[in-house]
Design a protein around this nucleic acid. Sequence first.
DNA 1: TCATTTTTGTTGACACGTCAAGTAATAATC
DNA 2: GATTATTACTTGACGTGTCAACAAAAATGA
Lengths: 156, 156
Amino acid sequence: METNILTEQQFKAWRALHSIRMQLLPHLTQRLATHSELTEAEFLVLVSLYESGTPAVRAKDMCRNLTWEISRLSHQITRMEASGLVNKVDTPDDARGFQVSLTDTGKQAIERALPLQHLEIKHCFGDVLTAQQLDSLIEIAEAIRKHIEDEHKRQR
Amino acid sequence: METNILTEQQFKAWRALHSIRMQLLPHLTQRLATHSELTEAEFLVLVSLYESGTPAVRAKDMCRNLTWEISRLSHQITRMEASGLVNKVDTPDDARGFQVSLTDTGKQAIERALPLQHLEIKHCFGDVLTAQQLDSLIEIAEAIRKHIEDEHKRQR
DNA sequence: TCATTTTTGTTGACACGTCAAGTAATAATC
DNA sequence: GATTATTACTTGACGTGTCAACAAAAATGA
């Protein structure tokens, strides 16, 4: 309770969120690097592609899916094309955009990494929490999403 | 439910956590940049110093406080010293380490930023959630912390 | 149809974070 | 007290993420 703006409980919860972020996420990205030699950003792009069910995904759609901005994706795809995980393809209907597709290497990488990473998530997140706690998280995310959306829309 | 490793609920909760991370945190760091011209890393260092109550904090202690590794702090302090927010001082008793102290600029910056940022946190986090949800977060963080600590200790 | 606006993406600069390799001082051990 | 191990930090390389400035295609609309 540094100031009296936040209540004690609010402050503790904020620190709790920070703690989750600083402990769980680095741990998981490290595991991912160890068992699959993928960074988190690479993993997210590959999952997004893999789960789309389509051979190629348009950049702007992937951005919406990942909640990334286009500049971030552009940089990331440039790097991943260089390392051979994805290909960049022109869109047939719109000469501005591009599509991203999995290479064979990329497909193998994600098919190997996905179950391993889900095991990690289960082990140090899913199985560590109670059903009530999992439900709370889902509610919390929704409450925050709604709030931010209202803020955002007003600003734009 | 992409694979059947995680239960549906676990998977949704995992996505919820991801959603919180991707929506709330960028929003808050952007606000911080807007109202105080500080990055999140700068803010965290300044808060750590300010709340220590001492004129200077030793690097390793600040690392423990922030859950940062020393390399990260070293880089960060180098940048912040260049921009005039902190000073680097030799420790009196141990010639290996260094201490960090607030400059006047840094002190003014944090005294201005802290209440503003707490208002933001209250507005889009603390006041958005119920008391039960706040308590859940505190419990969740503790459960994860304990789990990771056990994992970590075994590995070291 | 022509001009304007919007959408889509690129690029460069810069701050950030991690890793691995190194250095130097202190602590521990014999 | 000399050797060894540990601690505390530095540095460089590299992947990441944001911002602002830019470019070009597509949609809008007068």
